[in-house]
Amino acid sequence: MGKIKLFLNKRKFPILILVILALVIIGFGVYGYNKVQAYNNLITTANKYMDRDDYDKASALFEQSLKYKEDSSVEKNIKLAATLKKFKEIYDDGVKLASDKKYLGAIEKFKTIDKSGLKWYSNAQKEIKECKKQYIAQNMHLANDALKNNKYDDANKYLDDILKIDSNNEDAKNLKDSIDEAMNQKQENFKSEEEAKQVPQNNAEKANVKSNSNPINDKTNEYASKMREIDNKIYEIESQREGMYSGSEENRQALQRQIDLLKQKNDLIDQMQK
C-alpha cells in the first residue's frame, strides 16, 4: 500500500506540470487569436472608412492596428490616406470654383491632382473637360453678344481666350475669320458711305446750276419727279439699314443698292444738264 502511494505521488508532479503548460498554451492561443481578430477588425473598418473618403478615421484605425502587428502595407495605407485627403480637399475647392463659374481657376486646381490621387485624379480629369466645355460656351456667348453691338475687339478677346485652352476649336476660329472679314467690310462700308455722302451734295450743286441757267419745262419736271422717286428709295433703304447688323451680307447688299440709286440720280442730273 505504501508503495502505491509513493508511486502516485511521484506521478502527480509531472501531471501538474503538463496541466499548467497546457493552460499556458491555451491562454497564449486565445490571446493570439483575439489579437489577430482585433487587428483584422481594425483593418476592415479602416478600409471601409477609406471607401467612404473619411481619411482621418481610416488613418487613426490603421495607426491603432500597428499596436497589434507591424505591417508595411498598413504604413503605406496611412501615407495613402494622407495623400487622398489632400487631393480630396483640392478637388472640393475646384468644384466650388467651377460652381461659381470661375472655370480657369477650377482647371488650375484640378491640374494639381496627379495620378497618385487615384479616383480623385480620374474625377479631376473629368472636371477639367467639363470646365473647358463650360468656359468655351461662356466665351462664345460673350463673343456673339459683343458682335451684336459691333464690339469686334471685345469679341476677338473672348475668342482668343477660348483658343488659349483649345487651340483647335473650329467654332472660335471660324468666328474670328468672320470678324476679320466684317472689320474689313466695315472699313469699306465707311469709305463707300463717305463717297455716297458727296454724291447728293455734288448733284444738288449741278441741279442748281441747271435750274438757274434754264427755265423749268415739262422735261425738267419729269427729271425732278424721277429724282424724288430715287430719293425716296434711298431714304427707305437707309431706314432699313438702321436695323441691320453692319457686317452682315444683308447690310452690304442694301448699301450697294443705295450706291446704285445714287449713281442713277447722278446720271439723271447729267442728262438734265445736256
Rank of each mutant, 00 (worst) to 15 (best):
T112L: 05
K119L: 11
F110Q: 07
A124R: 04
Q134M: 09
N144C: 03
E130Q: 08
S122L: 13
T112V: 10
Q125P: 05
G117I: 14
I128S: 03
F110S: 06
D145V: 03
D145M: 09
K115E: 13
S122P: 06
Q125L: 13
S122T: 12
I128P: 02
Y121S: 13
K115G: 11
Q125H: 08
E108N: 08
A124C: 10
A146Y: 05
S116M: 04
L118H: 08
H141A: 15
Q125S: 08
K129L: 03
W120N: 12
K133C: 04
N139S: 12
N144T: 15
E130L: 04
F110M: 09
K129V: 10
I136P: 02
I128Q: 03
N139H: 09
K111I: 04
E130K: 10
Q134K: 11
W120R: 10
Q138S: 11
K132Y: 04
Y135W: 07
K129E: 13
N123S: 15
K109M: 05
A146T: 10
N139W: 03
E130P: 00
I128M: 03
E108H: 05
Y135P: 02
E130G: 01
Q138W: 00
E127R: 07
N144F: 00
K115C: 04
I113S: 12
M140P: 07
W120M: 14
S116P: 05
L147T: 09
N144D: 13
D114L: 01
G117Q: 12
K133W: 01
K129C: 00
M140E: 14
H141K: 15
S116V: 05
A143S: 13
D145S: 14
N139C: 11
A143W: 01
Y121M: 13
L118Y: 13
K126D: 10
N123P: 06
D114P: 07
K132N: 06
I128F: 03
K115H: 02
A124H: 12
S122C: 03
D145R: 12
E108R: 02
Q138R: 08
K132T: 03
